[in-house]
Write a protein that binds this DNA or RNA. Structure first.
Lengths: 150, 150
DNA sequence: CTCTCTGCAAAGAATTTGCAAACAC
DNA sequence: GTGTTTGCAAATTCTTTGCAGAGAG
């Protein structure tokens, strides 16, 4: 229900700049902060808090505290897929996804398509949808097919 | 991640038909089942399991067991709004919503709009989005305005 | 009567919080 | 040094499960 009050997301697309940005935002570059950023920048997709904690052996509570701090600082973002745990990724990763509710498959959605959708829903409802935090849910081609067959 | 294996949703738009339908599906019309259906048909919007339980003084565990059974029977559906608890409603309520992530305000989305969106995303990704279970998230006009100002 | 369903209590998953010791600067 | 951050443990929230007794048909 709540969207964190982000600092404007700045283009920080590699680990060293992200680490530097932590200091620039007036935050200490603590051990857990480093672990979170290293994990997210080295991963090839979104990670759970659990995965981040395991990757660098720090406490799960510290991961939660720090992804929040780093999200407020505009360096990290998170999204929610289905009923599962939250997934964290670098804020710079401008991914808009659609996720299969049946099998969990994910696909990127072209920003031009989401822009069109945003405009259409805006015009019809006055609300502006976005897909950063709660990605689109649906069925992948295979699951849609399986469902029709039986 | 999982979509329940619904029985085809049949047009059951009032409480007496819903109660009859329970028996027609070969289910017993138990006390808790009656409480769930009465609560959902008498409410003017989606309810949490907690609210259903309070409404008829039955155990929360029974509510969870029964909304699931009734969903499988095609009489109830549920959706997830933001980080909050699941919300349950009669399956016949063909609502497609957009929910403000900031203040929780909800608006209906015209089915023609969702149909267009569905087609556009389908064409672009192969995935078929739907908005029954995870409604669209975004900002309501007021929150969008507040955000721009400060 | 038989099988299903109920309430209660306990377990589970994800996340948050309190607190004293450890750390960044 | 001083204020922040850490790890650990306990609390919270939502949901699920085990079980013995009550209820539906």
């Amino acid at each position: 229900m709540t969207v964190p009050a982000h600092t404007a997301r700045i283009a920080v697309s590699d680990l060293p700049s992200a680490l530097a940005a932590v200091r620039e935002r007036g935050l200490r570059l603590s051990c857990a902060r480093r672990i979170v950023l290293e994990a997210l920048y080295e991963a090839d997709g979104p990670l759970t808090a659990e995965e981040i904690a395991r990757s660098g052996r720090c406490d799960l509570a510290s991961v939660y505290r720090n992804v929040e701090a780093l999200e407020t600082a505009g360096l990290v973002r998170h999204l929610h897929v289905g009923h599962g745990p939250g997934l964290y990724l670098p804020a710079a990763a401008a991914v808009e996804l659609i996720v299969c509710e049946r099998c969990g498959a994910r696909a990127d959605v072209d920003p031009r398509v989401t822009a069109d959708v945003r405009a259409a829903v805006q015009a019809a409802t006055g609300f502006t949808p976005h897909f950063d935090h709660f990605p689109l849910a649906g069925l992948c081609p295979r699951c849609a097919y399986d469902r029709q067959e039986g």
